[in-house]
């Protein structure tokens, strides 16, 4: 089982590498770019992606355009949440704290993967 998973990972990285080779003339530059994207920046991308977090649908976030206003603006997060873990729990399943909330349960309904939620938390925590 583990072997199969490793094989798949290898295949995927090979494909990724091939993909970046096809897209840019200098693979070294492309690899550098990818490494440069911090966890916070990756989290921001997931948060802003309409098919992923789509946080802007309801929340105003610095750097995002045309935000919705169903939820509160995402500012001063460290004052609003006692810990990163509390923020993560809210994103994972906001209905736990308020069953009537409109906020989708991103973890419970598997809208985002656990890894994606971790990254989104890192980004939101900076706001």
């Amino acid at each position: 089982m583990r072997k199969a998973a490793t094989l798949i990972t290898t295949a995927v990285s090979a494909a990724t590498l091939l993909g970046s080779l096809a897209l840019t003339s200098d693979p070294a530059v492309a690899a550098e770019k990818k490494k440069a994207l911090s966890v916070v920046e990756q989290g921001k991308q997931i948060a802003f992606n309409r098919k992923k977090g789509n946080c802007l649908a309801c929340h105003q976030i610095a750097g995002g355009t045309l935000p919705g206003n169903i939820g509160p603006p995402l500012v001063a997060m460290k004052q609003r949440f006692p810990s990163k873990q509390a923020l993560r729990e809210q994103i994972w399943d906001a209905t736990k704290r308020n069953p009537n909330t409109s906020m989708p349960p991103f973890g419970r309904h598997k809208i985002l993967t656990e890894d994606e939620i971790d990254k989104v938390v890192e980004f939101i925590w900076t706001l």
């Binding site: 802007l56 649908a57 935000p67 919705g68 206003n69 169903i70 409109s102």
Partner: peptide, 15 residues
Amino acid sequence: ADCHVANPGRRIRAN
């Protein structure tokens, strides 16, 4: 009801 009872007049993105 989440959108049209609890939140009419508010925006989902630009809508």
